[in-house]
Amino acid sequence: MDALKSAGRALIRSPSLAKQSWGGGGRHRKLPENWTDTRETLLEGMLFSLKYLGMTLVEQPKGEELSAAAIKRIVATAKASGKKLQKVTLKVSPRGIILTDNLTNQLIENVSIYRISYCTADKMHDKVFAYIAQSQHNQSLECHAFLCTKRKMAQAVTLTVAQAFKVAFEFWQVSKEEKEKRDKASQEGGDVLGARQDCTPPLKSLVATGNLLDLEETAKAPLSTVSANTTNMDEVPRPQALSGSSVVWELDDGLDEAFSRLAQSRTNPQVLDTGLTAQDMHYAQCLSPVDWDKPDSSGTEQDDLFSF
């Protein structure tokens, strides 16, 4: 819950932080000083300027060897085509990944977070970031790969997607708890209302004896509580940590079903599988986004697919 609360507080303090972009060759504004600060901008989305290598189908939802083989196929196909790589912007948030063309600003792909089953910074092609997700059109699994400016960037994108998945799962947990509370309150309110109706004398007997209905007592009954809980029953509950912020979080049926399955089948359902080692994760978390744009010590960066 700490990640969720800190993310909400950060967004309320400075929503404009989320509009910064990394990996864009110096076009961005001043960047936060450390990885923790940038992680807090996830709610509205972190932007990464990358190059799209392509996509291939895979048979399993996750796995280092599986993704490595898929990336190898994608890279080989991209090299064989001889075409310049498409420059894209990857927007990562707890909602998922939005992929747009840098030149036309046209939407290429919009992947809900619950469809993503794996992401990684490839070991062999260490400047490549990739994720595996279920197609929104059918049940097939797709591996999408992107060329980053350097290994640090690939690791940073991988960690960002993993963190977005974690925050999304926490949102789901909060929403589920809130819905259970509202359902319980609604049920209790309905029981109270039913009890009051059972003990209320029939209207005919009131008229016969000349008694008047006590409207004041009726007004004191917990009807307002019942209506408050039943009027918006169809509205999706939102985490309290975000009250007053500009973010509107809505959970669709697909996300609810997917996270429910994860909660039942996995020990740590909030953790998205990645190909990063503990050492890689520690190294990337210690980086400032400013470091992502620094040239690798191995030599001059080449803006070309064939540089790796």
Rank of each mutant, 00 (worst) to 15 (best):
H28V: 14
L272A: 04
K166M: 06
S16N: 12
A221G: 08
C286A: 10
V290P: 04
G254W: 03
D198Y: 05
K72R: 05
K83E: 12
L262W: 02
V248C: 10
P32M: 08
P32C: 08
G23E: 11
D191P: 08
G82N: 01
L4A: 06
N138E: 11
Y114A: 02
E250S: 12
T277W: 01
D37L: 10
Y114K: 01
L212K: 10
K127I: 00
V207P: 11
E44F: 12
A162D: 03
A10H: 03
Y283N: 08
S224I: 12
I108V: 13
L193S: 05
V207C: 09
V226F: 11
E59D: 05
T277M: 03
R13W: 08
K181V: 07
P201T: 13
I132M: 10
Q155G: 03
Q173N: 06
Y52S: 07
T56G: 04
T267E: 07
G63D: 11
G299M: 02
L43Q: 14
V226A: 09
L212R: 14
D252V: 04
G45R: 10
N268H: 12
K127T: 00
Q86E: 05
A195L: 03
G189D: 02
F169L: 02
R151D: 00
S307W: 04
A168T: 05
D252I: 05
L85R: 00
E64I: 12
D122K: 00
V247Y: 11
T160K: 05
V157I: 00
G45V: 14
T231R: 02
S135R: 14
L107P: 13
G275C: 06
D253K: 06
A284K: 10
T38V: 12
R13C: 15
P32V: 14
S227Y: 09
D198Q: 04
L272M: 13
Q163Y: 14
C143Y: 00
R95T: 01
N211T: 06
D253W: 02
G24W: 11
E188F: 03
D2L: 01
Y114E: 02
L107H: 12
W249N: 04
R182P: 15
V161F: 05
I113F: 03
E33A: 15
G96K: 07
E65I: 07
K181L: 12
K19S: 09
Q134N: 13
V58L: 13
L255D: 02
Q86K: 15
G25A: 04
L305F: 10
R95I: 03
S14R: 15
A76C: 01
Q134R: 15
A208V: 12
E40A: 10
T230M: 05
V75F: 00
L103C: 13
I74Q: 01
F306D: 01
I108N: 01
S81Y: 04
K83A: 09
F169W: 04
G82D: 02
A164R: 12
N229I: 05
T104V: 01
I98G: 01
T267M: 04
Q136L: 10
Q155V: 06
Y52D: 02
S81D: 15
V236M: 07
I108R: 12
K62S: 06
R238H: 06
S140H: 15
S288F: 03
K204H: 07
H137S: 15
M55P: 07
E177A: 11
V226Y: 08
F48T: 02
L43P: 13
D122H: 01
R27G: 12
E59I: 14
L50Y: 01
D304P: 07
W172L: 02
Q134E: 09
A263K: 12
S265F: 02
E180Y: 13
S298A: 09
C119K: 01
K91L: 05
Q20D: 10
L90T: 01
K87N: 15
S135A: 11
V174R: 05
G275H: 05
F306H: 01
L276R: 03
K150T: 15
E180C: 09
T36D: 14
L47N: 02
L99V: 12
A130D: 01
Q264L: 07
G194T: 11
E59N: 06
S265I: 06
Y114R: 02
T160D: 02
Q264N: 08
S93E: 07
Q86D: 05
Q86T: 14
G254A: 11
N102Q: 01
Q134G: 11
K30C: 11
R151F: 01
Q240M: 14
E44P: 03
L85S: 00
P222V: 07
H282G: 08
T277Q: 11
D252S: 06
D214I: 06
M55C: 09
R13D: 12
S16I: 10
T56A: 04
G45Q: 09
V167P: 03
W292G: 06
T41A: 09
G8M: 00
A145W: 00
H144D: 00
Q302P: 12
M233Q: 08
Y131T: 00
T225E: 09
A195F: 01
T231Y: 07
F129P: 00
S205C: 04
A154W: 00
A69L: 09
S135F: 06
Q139M: 12
E177I: 10
Q106P: 03
D293I: 06
H28L: 14
L141C: 08
R196G: 03
G82S: 02
P32D: 11
S227N: 11
E109T: 12
G299R: 03
A195Y: 02
L206Q: 11
Q173W: 12
A162W: 03
R261N: 07
V290K: 10
L212I: 09
Q187E: 05
S307I: 06
A258S: 03
K150A: 06
Y283R: 08
S67M: 13
A80F: 04
A164T: 06
A164L: 10
H28C: 13
V247E: 15
S260V: 04
D273Y: 03
A130E: 00
L223V: 15
L11Q: 12
C119I: 02
N138Y: 09
D126I: 00
L262H: 02
D304A: 05
R73S: 12
G63I: 05
L4G: 11
E142Q: 11
T277K: 03
